[in-house]
């Protein structure tokens, strides 16, 4: 009986406590830079797509919300023919970002993606691609990888030696 009266008194004292509710639309909550929200695809500093369509993100995705199809341009540079994320399935776990070898897929601090129709939550590549490099400004995958593409021959990448000419007999 006494404990009940004490409970009532303590609950009454909550009248003078600070309210924990964030008045969301009027008052935006602070989102950390590494907040896991809407997914984007970033670009090189040069403006080319970073994504090399390796399928690692689709394989890592626990809810299978990522679909893509790899293709190559005439110079041997890989890119996704289509890249589709179904945000009505996405759980924003960030595994795709961790799996990505080229920093192409990134999660952003934005979660306001309400739609009245479910199909509108399926984002195509045009919707996902942004014009900048995202969280990794200086990084360019094709500049550091040894793969030969148009405009960059073998051995022209950063920190890469010239390829050995196997036809010369000199060591």
């Amino acid at each position: 009986m006494l404990s009940m009266i004490r409970t009532i008194w303590y609950v009454f004292l909550h009248m003078f406590h600070r309210r924990v509710t964030v008045q969301y639309p009027d008052e935006q909550p602070y989102l950390a830079p590494r907040y896991r929200g809407r997914i984007i695809l970033s670009r090189d500093p040069d403006g080319g797509e970073r994504c090399v369509a390796c399928y690692l993100c689709a394989a890592a995705c626990p809810v299978d919300c990522i679909a893509l199809q790899a293709t190559e341009d005439s110079t041997g540079r890989r890119y996704p023919e289509f890249f589709r994320i179904n945000f009505s399935r996405c759980i924003f776990c960030g595994f795709c970002e961790e799996a990505c070898p080229t920093y192409a897929i990134q999660l952003t601090p934005d979660f306001e993606m309400s739609e009245y129709q479910r199909p509108n939550l399926v984002y195509e590549k045009e919707d996902l691609l942004i014009s900048g490099p995202g969280k990794y400004p200086g990084y360019n995958f094709w500049r550091v990888s040894g793969v030969q593409i148009g405009g960059k021959d073998k051995g022209e990448a950063e920190n890469e030696g010239r390829p050995v000419d196997l036809h010369s007999l000199l060591p």
Partner: peptide
């Protein structure tokens, strides 16, 4: 009272 109750309950539960 429906409004009063919801507001007061919120007040005592640190909500709005």
């Amino acid at each position: 009272l429906i409004w009063v109750e919801r507001r007061l309950l919120a007040l005592w539960q640190d909500r709005y």
